[in-house]
Amino acid sequence: MIYGIGTDICDIRRIRDTFERRGERFAAKVLGPHEMTVFQDRFARVPARGIAYLATRFSAKEAFSKAIGLGMRMPMTWRDCEVVKAPSGKPDIRLHNALATWFEAKGLTAHVTVTDETEYAAAFVVVETRD
Rank of each mutant, 00 (worst) to 15 (best):
E117V: 07
V84H: 09
G71C: 12
W78T: 02
G71H: 04
T101V: 11
I68V: 15
V84F: 02
T109Q: 14
A122D: 04
D80K: 14
K106W: 03
D116S: 11
I93M: 12
M72P: 10
D80V: 12
T118Q: 13
K106H: 15
T118P: 01
H96R: 15
F64R: 08
L95H: 08
F124A: 06
D116H: 15
E119Y: 13
A100F: 01
N97V: 09
F124M: 05
A67S: 11
R79N: 15
L99M: 14
G71D: 07
L70M: 08
W102E: 12
G107Y: 03
V84I: 15
A67L: 01
P91I: 07
I93Q: 03
K61H: 10
P75Y: 03
K66F: 08
V112C: 10
A67Q: 03
L70G: 01
D92I: 10
F64K: 05
T109K: 13
Y120I: 11
A121V: 11
V114M: 11
L108F: 07
S88P: 12
S59D: 10
W78P: 10
A63I: 09
S88F: 04
E119G: 12
P87V: 06
G107H: 03
A100Y: 00
A122I: 00
H111P: 00
P91G: 09
K90N: 06
M76V: 14
V112D: 12
A67G: 05
K106C: 03
L108D: 01
K66R: 07
P75M: 01
A105P: 02
H111R: 09
E104I: 00
D80W: 03
V83E: 07
E104M: 03
E117Q: 08
M76L: 07
D116W: 11
D80C: 11
A98F: 04
A122Y: 02
M74L: 10
D80P: 02
C81R: 02
A110D: 06
H96V: 04
